[in-house]
Write a protein that binds this DNA or RNA. Structure first.
Length: 137
DNA sequence: GCCAACGTTGGC
DNA sequence: GCCAACGTTGGC
């Protein structure tokens, strides 16, 4: 199983919005970046990811699961763009801030730190484990 | 609100 | 195919 990180501006699509969708989940649409799209194409059913609030909060607030693999993005006719569907699994007991991630030398290679503008990122298993424990999981 | 980083577009 | 111009993202 692979791990990912989904970044969203709370004002556009927040963790609360995602939670409200429950088991129905939601398309992770609107991605217009090749790297992010390529990451989504690699996702498989059951893969898990962090849900990160950018801008104001800058923290990992929840865990999501891939419930549908890459398919055309319904928000555009441009067939270049695809998206996956994700559903909320749980909120994290203790949100992990960007500041905390930056302060941890073992997480220095995370795309969250190195490639700040990428909205859909891969997370290694080692990084996943560390962040989970920081989050109180 | 500013600005650095980076991706995309389009002229040549 | 290069590169300048431009637009967007996101941290500060």
């Amino acid at each position: 199983m692979a791990y990912w990180l989904f970044k969203s501006e709370p004002s556009a699509w927040s963790w609360q919005d995602q939670l409200a969708k429950g088991e129905a989940g939601e398309e992770w649409d609107g991605v217009r970046n090749y790297q992010a799209r390529n990451n989504m194409r690699k996702m498989r059913l059951g893969d898990q990811g962090f849900f990160y609030h950018s801008q104001k909060d800058k923290e990992i607030v929840g865990i999501v699961e891939v419930m549908a693999e890459a398919h055309p993005d319904s928000t555009t006719d441009d067939e270049r763009w695809e998206c996956v569907d994700i559903k909320a699994v749980s909120s994290v007991p203790t949100p992990v801030t960007l500041e905390q991630v930056k302060a941890n030398a073992k997480l220095a290679e995370m795309a969250l730190v190195k490639n700040t503008r990428l909205s859909v990122q891969p997370v290694t298993e080692a990084e996943w484990d560390i962040v989970c424990s920081m989050a109180g999981l």
